[in-house]
Design a protein around this nucleic acid. Structure first.
Lengths: 195, 195, 195, 195
DNA sequence: TATGAATGAGTATTCATTCAT
DNA sequence: TATGAATGAATACTCATTCAT
């Protein structure tokens, strides 16, 4: 697995790499601001300042651009998740949930438009992994939590949590920085899990 | 307001009505199975077994078909919501949540694909109303519930609940009929609200 | 040659005749007010208050309606031309031109929009006949007129005269009733022809 | 103001310019031979030997092709009118009319079908200007001409003259090169104007 | 390798005409 | 005979993709 995973060929020169970057940025920008419907190869190329031909030099088709964007987004997401999860295992439930909520909100605060556009296609790329991590935590803290079926519990919790924060980011982004909102989300999680 | 609200002209013969229905069914089917992106007037007409011309005899444009579908869906949704809400006011929290969860799951069990396609356009048509109804219930039962800010609480609860059931219907529809799942969703709601 | 010359079949009943009339009136109205581009069989039928099916009961296609309209217009035109020409032969040039100019202006004053719509297709249906009549007059008055080639002269005169009045009717209809304009048109004709 | 005034984008390669030209030629050809009603983007592209896509690469819509054609036609027309008018002011009436008639006939001899198709849309773009020029001439030569109302006179003369030559070009093009016809047209003009 | 001109299948929509009721 | 629902070829226009330069 390398950085240019879904690309046609490995760029050998800086110029090529720069072209790839500029194309992805343009794609992200259009997706974030105008949505998938207005994404067209010619617009991407134009906004990127290169020719359509160049686009097809590095990407086999339009979807590949979106796929690569998603791959990177996921990669970044994972890195942050790992970082966030690192110290979590040792923490008690309440505190772990606090950290996790912060993580969830931070992630969605960044570029909800882009997150939404990437999510609308394969809206579940990120859940499975994060669910597994949650499951791991819950199993390690089984004596602290109420639900018996931890698989189901983590599923419910993450599906609900992710969607809640996701939709809030899209529709009422100002809530994300509202302390009361954050507290209540934590309550939702905590009260569901605690004994 | 009549049944053929958004139509170009009112069907005057049985044949017309049948055509309208068959067109809407085809639209619903494509939306449900393939999504909005693959919805085209020619495909609708073909699947409906009529000509494109007939489509335009009754609908001014493609969007009108989707709009009519949404109108009907919403109408049915509202009727069911009213019915479900009728006896709820008098019930204690636990029981009210039980009924409400059942309602939510039933709604989504029907045709999650269609619900999804219709929702992606105006993704919030149903939440505000249902939220207001929840708020009314909570205010009347203020002494039974923990959260102070009932507006925020109903928002969080419904955003999370709706999304949870919605996504579950799309990805793991079998869970919807699983008793354990239903119980856990109730727990999520109940534990968040109770004192 | 009968009145329903270009019709599919002879109407046997008053109702049929009434339908034909109502269709032609609708056609004339649309042509006159909105032009050929906005003429459609459904609009004709609707404005006429009958069904498209009825339209095709009496006319083989859209063009037949226009053709019949043209035929009638021409017929009326001819009748008026005959009437106008009746006493002309005996008149001296100056007076004949005066009468003729009056005729030309009167004809165009009536419904320039319709005349234009009918003319734009076959813009010369009326000229040949009127030209022949003019020629006949000129030959009978050969000693009063300058041009040798009377065929050419009548052609030039009528082409120019018809177009002048036609365009004036379309663009500056108010000029048609302006005495000065009428006098000058007569001058144009008279001075060209007189010895 | 440049040559490709109404185009979507400026052609940067020779190939592009050739495509634009070939499209305009095809448009002119269809307009000239079959009229505006039979002008369709697919036919234009086909006759031009390129794809519809190419048409839309350079023209935002069908009208833009006609507009560009008109612009060019008008430009050429104006240049010729200026050239023709240059030496006219000093000439006596008879001679001025001779030159003017020659100009009028030459203009229409070229492609009457195209002139007709372009004119039918904005049928008066050329008259006002030419009328003003005629008026200027007549005012300067007021002592040589009979009519008092020179504005009306130039109007009548040009409306009649333009239409006469225009229609003749369309219906009996061979007349345009006939000496007798030319002489008679001059007579029509001269006799109307002279004292 | 980069460019951007060219392609053409695909899309929404219209409208003259047919035909079952 | 009248009706109006149904038809489908035609039209303007878009956009992902290819390929000559």
């Amino acid at each position: 697995m390398n950085k240019y995973n879904s690309l046609k060929k490995l760029p050998k020169q800086d110029r090529s790499e720069a072209t790839v970057e500029v194309l992805l940025e343009a794609t992200a920008r259009i997706l974030s601001k105008e949505g998938k419907a207005r994404l067209s190869t010619n617009r991407i190329a134009q906004l990127a300042g290169v020719s359509v031909g160049s686009l097809y030099q590095y990407f086999p088709n339009k979807e590949a651009l979106v796929a690569e964007l998603r791959r990177r987004y996921e990669e970044a997401f994972l890195n942050r998740l790992m970082a966030a999860a690192a110290g979590l295992g040792a923490l008690p439930l309440r505190e772990a949930i606090h950290q996790f909520t912060r993580f969830l909100v931070d992630i969605h605060a960044e570029d909800p438009g882009l997150h939404n556009a990437l999510a609308e296609e394969i809206p579940d790329w990120e859940l499975p992994l994060i669910q597994r991590m949650a499951l791991t935590y819950l199993e390690a803290h089984r004596d602290e939590v109420r639900p018996e079926n931890l698989d189901l519990a983590s599923r419910i919790l993450l599906q609900a949590g992710e969607a809640l924060v996701h939709e809030t980011a899209l529709r009422s982004p100002e809530l994300l920085t509202n302390a009361e909102f954050n507290v209540e989300v934590e309550e939702l999680f905590y009260r569901y899990l605690r004994k």
